[in-house]
């Protein structure tokens, strides 16, 4: 159990590093972080107000809730402009990014939709596969010893390195993108679900052992519901990660397909920085919205769980 947990932590920090990498290299980290913290702050304000029976809208309107986010965004924007004004080849002016989007909004929408659908379909494939493997591995010791080493090898292999090979094998269609996204999301889900399935407390298992509940009953009635908090923890990591997977796969097949990754690689080879950053902004917004939706869903599904009680209390 402890072994699982440790490896699980490793997997998560690994995933976090992967997720941070492409953003760091593009200098939008600050802007993205600001957007993300904005949604997070809004989310907590809603949850905090519910037990007091006060109108959640009213608390969002309180300056102490929205002002920090707005100020942070303004500061980030001003810093950006200060750098961009004198270094147009380092950063495009914010106005130029806005203009790039406004002049052809359908271009960005279309490409964002393609990247998003690649990411989500790949994520579903990775999720289903990881969940099935997690159940198999927790139910059978022999299969665990057979499968886990393979899964670990898969995890330490940089998926970015596999992407070009997949493009050679499967062409410029959606297949390599889905495979890369599925691969990149597989391991964090696997480790979290394994930990979750094993998180039923021993006294509960003893009560149901004296009732001779079947393994299937223990799985469906005890283990699966117990794993939900861990599933959501995994989803919060892999939703943004799935977009990373889709973009990386698009980088490997440049020019031949659509998608924001393709937009970025084509535009950067033409030194059109405003377009590059407009696409990056789209990716950041997509990631933040996905994260927000997962958090909302978690709040609905995990009403019973400690993590949600803490936030509410």
């Amino acid at each position: 159990m402890t072994n699982h947990a440790v490896r699980n932590d490793a997997a998560r920090s690994d995933a976090a590093r992967n997720a941070a990498l492409p953003l760091d290299t593009t200098d939008t980290a600050i802007a993205t972080a600001a957007t993300a913290s904005g949604t997070a702050a809004a989310a907590t304000s809603v949850s905090r107000s519910t037990p007091r029976r006060s109108n959640p809208r009213r608390s969002i309107l309180r300056p102490t809730i929205w002002l920090p986010v707005v100020v942070a965004l303004l500061v980030a924007g001003v810093l950006w402009e200060l750098i961009a004004i004198n270094n147009t080849y380092l950063l495009p002016r914010l106005g130029m990014i806005g203009q790039a989007i406004i002049t052809q909004p359908s271009f960005y929408l279309e490409n964002a939709w393609i990247t998003l659908s690649e990411a989500l379909i790949g994520l579903v494939i990775g999720f289903v596969a990881a969940f099935i493997v997690a159940v198999i591995v927790t139910e059978s010791g022999i299969l665990r010893r057979a499968i886990m080493p393979l899964a670990v090898v898969l995890n330490v292999t940089p998926v970015v390195a596999i992407a070009p090979a997949l493009v050679v094998a499967f062409g410029f269609g959606p297949a390599p993108k889905l495979i890369v996204t599925a691969l990149i999301t597989f391991f964090p889900i696997l480790m979290n679900v394994i930990t979750g399935l094993n998180s039923v407390s021993p006294p509960i298992l003893q009560v149901f052992a004296t009732l001779r509940a079947s393994r299937l009953e223990v799985l469906t009635r005890l283990r699966l519901p117990s794993s939900l908090p861990y599933v959501f923890a995994a989803l919060k990591v892999v939703f943004p990660l799935s977009i990373v997977g889709a973009v990386v796969a698009e980088f490997s097949a440049p020019g031949a397909a659509k998608g924001l990754g393709t937009v970025i690689s084509v535009a950067s080879s033409n030194s059109r920085l405003a377009v590059v950053y407009a696409a990056i902004l789209c990716l950041a917004i997509m990631g933040a919205v996905l994260l927000f939706l997962v958090t909302l869903l978690e709040k609905r599904v995990l009403r019973w769980h400690e993590s949600q009680l803490l936030k509410r209390g």
Binding site: S201, P203, I204, Q206, V207, R221, L222, P225
Partner: peptide, 9 residues
């Protein structure tokens, strides 16, 4: 058992 061991959900 010693602890209630209820299913929280």
């Amino acid at each position: 058992p010693q602890v209630p061991a209820l299913l929280p959900w």
